[in-house]
Design a binder for these strands. Sequence first.
DNA 1: CTTGATAGGATACGACTGTATCCATTCAGG
DNA 2: CCTGAATGGATACAGTCGTATCCTATCAAG
Lengths: 202, 202
Amino acid sequence: MPKQVDHEERRRHLTEALLRIASTRGLQAVSMREIAAEAGVSLRVVQYYFTNKQALLESGLTELGARMDRRVKQRATAAAGELTPRGAFAAVLGTILPFDEQSTLDSMAWTAYYTAALTDPALAAVGLTLPNALENYLTVRLTAAQQAGDIAPDRDPRTEVASLLALANGLTSSVLSGQRSHEAATEIIDYRLDRLFGPATA
Amino acid sequence: MPKQVDHEERRRHLTEALLRIASTRGLQAVSMREIAAEAGVSLRVVQYYFTNKQALLESGLTELGARMDRRVKQRATAAAGELTPRGAFAAVLGTILPFDEQSTLDSMAWTAYYTAALTDPALAAVGLTLPNALENYLTVRLTAAQQAGDIAPDRDPRTEVASLLALANGLTSSVLSGQRSHEAATEIIDYRLDRLFGPATA
DNA sequence: CTTGATAGGATACGACTGTATCCATTCAGG
DNA sequence: CCTGAATGGATACAGTCGTATCCTATCAAG
C-alpha cells in the first residue's frame, strides 16, 4: 500500500476547515471547494475522505458537540475538587455563553447548525443530543441540591433548569448579535443564580 | 399607461411567498425562481418588482418585524382597557413565543433571518430594530412599575427585562426544535413573572 | 388612431454547485 | 523488482443560481 495516511486525522482536519467557514461566513458559504481551499487540499481529497456533503455536515455538528462537552468538563475540573451546586451551574451556563474568540466562533457555527436543523431532520437528530443531555444532568444535580437544602423547597428543579438553559441560549444569541457584551450576559446569569441559590458564597 | 398594477400589493404578495418558503424550507431554499413558483408568477415579475435578491430578503425581514409588532399590539389591546404591568409583560413575552401555526412559521423565518444576520451586516441592521425597541419599551414600563411599588425595589429593571427577553428567545428556540411544548414554555414564563411580580392577580 | 410608457413572457449568460470519472503517483507485500 | 491497492490531481457533467436582455402585449394620453 502507498502513502498510508491517518484517515481520522485527515477527516478532523477537514471538519475543522468546515467549521472555520461556517462560523465566519455561515453554513450557506460552505461548499466542497471552499472546504478544500480552507484546508489547503484539492477538491478530490475532500471527496475522498467524505462520501457526501451531508456526511461532512454531520461530522461538523458532531465535532461541535464534542468541543462543547470538552469545554464543560474542563471548566468543571478547573474549579478544582468538589463543586458547590451553584459552582456547577455557573460552570455549565458560563460555558454555553461565548467567552473567548474560539467559543464565539463555535457558538456562531452552533447557531447556524441549529437553524439548519429546523428544516433538516437528519441534523436535528444529531443536534439535540447534547442539549437534552445537559438538561438532564443539571436537573439531577438541582434535585439533589434541593434535597440537601441548597435551594428553596418550593422551586421546581426541572422548570428552573429549563429556564436557565433557555436563558443561556437566548443570551448567547444576543451576545453574538452584539446586543450585549459577554460580561453583561454573565451578570444576568449570576443575577439569576443569586435568586436561585442565594448570593454567591465566598 | 397600461394595466396599471398596485405595486405595493404586488410586492407584499411576493414577500409573503418568500416568507412561506423561508419558514418551511429555510432561507437557503429561497431563490428567485422558487419565489416566482410559490407566488404563481414568472421569474420576470419577481425581478420586475424587486431590483435585487438582497432587496427581497430585506423586505421579508421588514415584513416579519411588522407582523410581530401587529401581534403585540393586538394582544395588548385584546386585554381590554388598561393593562397591569404584569399583563403587559405576559402579552409581549407570550407574543414572542410561537403560539399558533402562523406565529410558529414566522418564528421559524425569524430564526433563519437571525442566523443569516450573523454573517450579513445588511440584515443585522434591519433585524435589530425590533428587539431593541421591545427591550426599551419594557424597561420603561418596568421602571415605572417599580416606582409604583409593583416589584421589589432591589430588582434592576434593565437586567430583568434583558433576562426575560433572552428567556423568551431561548424558549422559542426550544419550542421550534420540539424540545418543549408551547404550554411548557408559557408555564416557564409565568413562573418567572410570578417571581418578579408575585403570583398573578385574579 | 397613434404613441409610448408599463407590465411581463421567454431565453440567455456566466458563475457556482455536488458528484463522477479518468489518470498518475506512491509504496508495502510477494 | 514488480504488482496492485491507496492516494490524490485534473477535468467533466448536469443542475441551479442571480441577473440581464430581447421582445411582445396592454392601455391611458395626445
